[in-house]
Amino acid sequence: MPTLTINGIEVQVEKGTTVLEAARFLGIPIPTLCHDDGLVPYGACRLCLVEVSNGRKQTLQASCCLPAEDGLKVLTHSARVERARRLLVEMYVAVCPSSKRIQDMASAMGVRQVRYQAKHETCIQCGLCVRTCEQQMMAGAIGFSGRGLNRSVSRPFDMTSELCRQCGACLYVCPVCESRCQGPQAESTLCNGCLNISTVCFQSYDNAMCFLEPCHACEIGGPFRADVQVKPRSKDFTRIGEK
């Protein structure tokens, strides 16, 4: 049983466990877009990067594909990791601004501007649908085609496949098909909408415990961040980070 250190905590896991699984076991949240527990890890979204040191040098590695090994020293939220993730998410927002999940990540990670040209794509090629179709539904009706900038998820010859049972599993696992609050036609690339909402619960209920998963408004202005002034809801609603 390999023993590794994650953020200074020593943890012993079973052989064959990945670093991502080990970290989640410890309750450390690591963002992912292409990972699903029931599927073979793919390592394409790169959001689950962690800083790994093997004694000589520190590198960033995708934790979903990294087997837990003896003596591994892992940092899941070092400055380097955070910066890399933030820059990654900034690009994700530019590519697929219509996705709620990506916009939520951007808000949570502190992405306050998107400097890239927006592409308004509907797919980030995480491969979850392709793997689900093949590994869980045993159908193999969809796959990837092309290379580089022409790569896409497709059916052979773009024709309806005989193998597709229309089970909808592909839709179910898709991380980006849920639209953001303002819908896909929103004018701005970056939403950051919830940052402009003052924390309703905190103001109304004072210090009452909230058992819900804290929303970003809560994280930014809530009771856990005494250094940040709670911003009252203003009438002239402007978004932060948009020119």
Binding site: G43, R46, L88, M91, G148, L149, N150, R151
Partner: peptide
Amino acid sequence: LEEESCGKCFPCREGTQQMKG
């Protein structure tokens, strides 16, 4: 590189396109 990137991982596929842009 934009043409020759295999396109599997996001940063290489999209990043090369954005940088070229």
